[in-house]
Amino acid sequence: MKKLLITALLMGTFSMSYAQSDYYNDYRRSITDINWQTVVADLLLSTTQANQVYSLNDRYRDYDTWNRVYVVDPGRWRGDRYSELERILGREKYMVFKKKYYRGQNPVIVYGRNKNDYKKYRKQKEKYYKERAKSYKKQHKHHGHND
């Protein structure tokens, strides 16, 4: 059973490598598709806010630095990025930003074209953890532990 589980896990890891780069490409597009200087001017951001936005945009300059953080859950970048952006801009300015630059849609959806890959990935991960939980329970029953 362990060999089967390891094989399935490895296959999932290798099959997700293409999807990982798609997630990273979406991340990069979320930065490059927008003229951030215009955003700063339109929203009348303070110098501190502007610097924080630029810093956020420069956080992961290449795939490797991004992947170190999001290797396990590549779709998480969206929630992380936009909650951080909302924190920097404040709720009101964030809503104006979202309405103007994303036509009122949640940015997570705008850059969520890989959501079907992510659902598949999440199901694989859930199945893996359920299997681990079962084997854990079996091991503890065999050792005479009573729950």
Rank of each mutant, 00 (worst) to 15 (best):
Y70V: 14
P107F: 02
S135T: 10
N35T: 07
E84P: 07
M1F: 04
D73C: 09
L89T: 02
Y111V: 02
A133Y: 05
Q49S: 05
L4Y: 06
N51A: 14
R59A: 08
L45P: 07
V69Q: 15
G12V: 00
F97Q: 11
A41L: 13
K134P: 02
R68P: 00
K123W: 15
M11L: 15
R28I: 11
I34R: 00
R81T: 07
V96K: 05
G112S: 09
Y121A: 01
Q49G: 03
V53R: 00
K138Y: 03
T47I: 10
K2W: 05
T13G: 08
Y23K: 09
M1H: 11
L44K: 14
Y94T: 10
Y82V: 01
T13K: 10
R81P: 05
L85M: 12
S46H: 05
H140V: 04
G112W: 09
K141W: 15
Y24L: 10
L85T: 03
K93Y: 06
G12P: 02
Y102S: 00
K93Q: 01
V96G: 06
I109S: 13
L85Y: 11
K120Y: 03
S21V: 15
Q105T: 11
I88Q: 00
I109M: 09
E126G: 15
K119F: 15
I34Y: 11
E126H: 08
L4W: 08
Q139I: 13
D73Q: 09
V108W: 07
Y101P: 11
S15W: 14
W66C: 14
N116R: 15
K134M: 14
R81N: 10
Y18P: 07
V108G: 14
R68D: 08
G144I: 08
I109G: 02
V69K: 09
T7L: 07
K100D: 03
G112D: 09
R78N: 13
I6W: 01
Y27G: 03
P107K: 04
G112R: 12
L89D: 02
D64S: 07
Y70D: 01
Q105H: 03
G90L: 06
R59G: 04
K127N: 04
F14W: 10
H142R: 13
W66I: 06
L4M: 12
Y27L: 06
A8F: 02
S21G: 07
G79D: 03
F97Y: 05
Y102L: 00
K130W: 06
Y27V: 08
K2G: 02
W36Q: 13
I34G: 08
L89I: 13
D42H: 14
Y60L: 01
P74C: 04
D117W: 11
D22P: 00
Q37Y: 13
R122Y: 06
N57D: 12
T7K: 09
Y128Q: 00
K123P: 03
L9P: 01
D26F: 12
R28S: 14
H143K: 06
K137C: 06
Q37A: 04
N35H: 03
L85C: 15
K100Y: 10
K141C: 09
S30Q: 06
K137W: 08
V71D: 04
K99C: 11
D147T: 14
